[in-house]
Every structure is written in structure tokens, then in C-alpha cells.
Simulated assay, not measured.
Amino acid sequence: MKHLFFLFFLFPFFVFAQKSIDTALLKTTEFTSDKIIAIDNFGTVFYLQENTIYRKTTSETLSYNNLQLGEVTSANAFNPLKINLFYHDFNTIIILDNRLAEIFRIDFNRILPYKNVTHVSAGFDNTLWLFNQDNQQLELYNYKNNTTQARSLPIQNKILDLVSNYNNVWLLTEDYIYEYNYFGNLVSKTKNQGYSELIENNGNLILKKQNALYYQGKNDNEATLITLPNLLINQFFVTNETLYIYQNQKLQQFQLKIN
């Protein structure tokens, strides 16, 4: 009887620990790319193939490449009017408009003070979030007037990922997940529970640990496992409440059933 009492006592905690977010498969599409950058609400796909960025709609496909700058390290289409391409080997960022025409070039080798950039993400207006490896700081950089509008305290951790929206930025390190506002003020700092990648959607986070994904709402302190079929997660991103997973030339769409 005593053992039975403890079993019932522990049962609610066990159920709480095992909670998860269900998904429903909506669609599977054959798709070939080296990396999918984003899919917007209208189904426009931004992707990289053989070091060329493409913008594909139902009616046309546009492209841009810059072979002189080598390999594209990262690409961000959060603001489709100001897409940024980062070329780490040349310490350079290219800004493209929605027709993939080059509208601005930032060569940090020619700008003073010099910045040794390792990670880039979109900011508001004419700004970008940069991680400057030389001073180990996250910076909100205005590329139009070459000024740093905000700067974090030095971060003595290996940087794994950087994502942002117009208001906030999240920095994933080996030990912590940092969230800052657009003034560069620290909003939150939480322990990294083994995550290696993250994405942002309306202030909510999707985090990857090994071959599993977790959802953390903007007002939550803990992440919840997302239930998915057994598949290899090469890439993942979210548009509204649709989770996209790209693997083996298949783009799968899942509905996130978030209460």
C-alpha cells in the first residue's frame, strides 16, 4: 500500500515531464537545394544551390551569385526587401532587394574600426546583428552610417547560432541562450540544455538537440518536445504555425498543434 501511494504521488510529475507538442503532416514536396533559407506566407522559397541564392515563386525564379567572394556562410531573408548574404572568408555582407539585386555591400576589411565577424542576423531598418569575434561582443550595426547602435557585454562562450526579429535577438552558445532587446540590454539568460541550433518565430523558439526539436514559447522558461516521425532533420524552420523540415531532397510541412 505504501508503494502504491508513492506511485500515485509521482504520477502527475511523470506525465508533466513527458508532455509534448503534437504535429500533423500536411504535405511532402520533392525539392533540391543545398540549403533552404526561408519560405514566406505566399509560398515563395529562398534557397541556396551551388553557392547561388534563388527566389522561387509559382511564376518565376530569380537568382544571384558572387563568385569572387567565395562560399556563402549564411543567408537571411527575414526581411525580404533586405536579404543579407554573409561571406565569412572575405568578411563581407551583401544586401539584396526583393528582386535579388545588390543594393549594399559591407566589406569589414575596408571599414574602421575593423570588425572580425563570425555570425550575422537581420535587424530593424538599416541594421544588422553581428558577433564580433575580436571583442567577443554582440553588436547592432547600422551599415548605412557605419555606427554601432548597441553592444552586449563580452561573451566568453563558443557561439553556435544567432537569430533575430525586429525587436529581439537570441544568441546560442555552448553554455547559455542569451536574449537581448534592440537596445542591447540582456532580457534573459538560460542554461543551454544541449541544443545546437535554434530558429525564431514571433518571439517563440524552436531548438534542435541531436535529431529532435523542442518548442519554447515566448513566455515559457522550459522547452517542450515536438512529436515527429522518425526522420533525419537536416534543416528546419517555421512560418506561422507550419513547421518545415528538409531532408533527403524532401520538404515536409507539419502543422504544430500548440495549445
Rank of each mutant, 00 (worst) to 15 (best):
L81S: 15
F90Y: 07
H119C: 01
I106T: 07
L69A: 02
D89H: 11
T73M: 06
A77Q: 02
K82V: 07
F124S: 06
Y114N: 11
K115G: 05
P80F: 01
H88P: 00
F90W: 11
N116I: 03
D125R: 06
V117Q: 06
A122H: 15
G70V: 10
V117F: 13
I83K: 10
L85K: 02
F86I: 04
T92A: 03
E102M: 14
F108G: 05
F104R: 02
I93K: 02
I83S: 04
V117P: 00
A122K: 08
E71Y: 11
I83D: 01
L112F: 14
N91K: 14
T127Q: 15
F78A: 03
H88C: 04
L85E: 05
L81V: 09
H88V: 08
R105A: 08
L100R: 07
R110N: 14
A75Y: 00
A77S: 06
N109T: 12
Y87F: 06
R110Y: 06
A122D: 11
G70E: 09
T118V: 13
Y87K: 03
H88E: 14
T118Q: 05
N91R: 13
F86L: 08
S74W: 04
Y114S: 07
T73E: 08
V117C: 06
L85C: 02
A101F: 14
T73Y: 12
R99V: 14
N91Q: 08
Y87S: 05
F86P: 00
G70W: 07
P113L: 08
Q68L: 10
L112P: 15
E102W: 01
I95N: 05
H88R: 12
G70M: 06
F86H: 04
L85V: 11
A77Y: 00
I103W: 10
A75N: 02
N76A: 03
I93M: 03
E71K: 08
F78R: 04
A75K: 00
A101W: 03
I103G: 07
Y114R: 10
Q68T: 09
D97K: 09
P113M: 13
F108I: 06
S74N: 09
N126K: 06
S74F: 03
E102H: 06
